[in-house]
């Protein structure tokens, strides 16, 4: 912090900076707050001044969105997809990152390079090839067993989400594991602990802060993701995640003008991430700079 003499020019500069900060704050807060306000308005109130305060608290919007627009089902699907994807990710990425960063073996260098290269593969390029892979596999399964498995299956969406975020997660965790001194393992081996026990009992507890960072980032990206789930869950009345359900509501809104329902749905998608953010905002912004950049 720099001490400057409190002159007139100094005060003016400060004022300009405050104005800039406040303008940006308003530009960010007002639209978000507006959605919360709109979510309790009645449909008729949307034809008129958008800045008018709601005439009453129309909670029915949330009930309608939850049941009629099936946002309740979608909410559950989103929770399942996110939770399963996080579980798969941790079970697969933690041991891999640990071994790749601390063990030398034939091919370890090639694997490390391979996962680094994976950082550059973006899911938007490969979502259609993955989809067609499932189309082909399901066609085969239908001929043999009479039912498909891969498409319209939330668990498969979790698997795809977890797999496509593996390179970044392994990169982030390896960075942390590589900083730990070798002494921990050596001491554990001397005490007679096996490789697996050492990893689970000694190393994983130490990696807790990085694991929390990984969970936070991936929770947000899984919860908010919509291209993969939109492509893989295409059955008309089948499972959907919240963002995809919301997208359908947005399209339906143009035809049916169910504004209240749509903004109630919007609030349902936002609230979990906002609550999480309020609880962990410090960790999130610090973790971001620890882990480097993310797409």
């Amino acid at each position: 912090m720099v001490d400057r003499k409190p002159t007139g020019g100094e005060a003016a500069a400060k004022a300009v900076m405050y104005v800039a900060l406040i303008v940006l704050t308003v530009l960010i807060v007002i639209p978000v707050a507006w959605v919360f306000m709109a979510s309790i308005k009645q449909n008729s109130e949307f034809y008129g001044n958008p800045w008018a305060l709601p005439q009453g608290v129309h909670i029915q919007n949330f009930v309608d969105a939850w049941t009629k627009a099936r946002m309740g089902d979608y909410f559950m699907t989103s929770i399942i997809v996110t939770a399963v994807a996080l579980a798969i990710l941790l079970v697969v990425a933690l041991p891999a990152a640990y071994v790749l960063s601390r063990y030398k073996f034939i091919g370890s260098k090639a694997l490390n390079t391979g996962f680094m290269a994976g950082l550059f593969i973006n899911v938007n390029y490969i979502v259609v090839p993955i989809f067609l892979m499932f189309v082909t596999a399901d066609k085969f399964l239908k001929e043999v067993f009479g039912a498909g498995f891969f498409l319209n299956n939330p668990f498969v969406v979790s698997l795809v989400l977890a797999s496509t975020t593996l390179p970044f997660t392994i990169y982030l965790l390896s960075g942390y594991f590589a900083t730990l001194p070798k002494d921990y393992e050596e001491a554990a081996y001397v005490d007679g602990a096996g490789y697996f026990t050492t990893m689970v009992r000694i190393i994983m507890p130490m990696a807790k802060p990085s694991i929390v960072t990984v969970i936070l980032f991936n929770f947000l990206s899984y919860w908010n993701e919509y291209i993969i789930s939109m492509t893989m869950l295409s059955e008309p009345d089948g499972a959907r995640t919240l963002p995809v359900g919301l997208l359908n509501l947005m399209k339906a809104q143009n035809a049916k003008a169910e504004y209240g329902q749509m903004y109630a749905g919007l609030v349902m998608v936002m609230v979990p991430t906002l609550i999480l953010y309020i609880c962990v905002q410090k960790k999130l912004t610090q973790g971001m700079t620890l882990g480097g950049l993310k797409g």
């Binding site: 919860w223 908010n224 919301l246 947005m250 998608v269 999130l284």
Partner: peptide
């Protein structure tokens, strides 16, 4: 804004 879904 960074924590909100692009759909939102």
């Amino acid at each position: 804004p960074n924590i909100l879904s692009v759909v939102v």
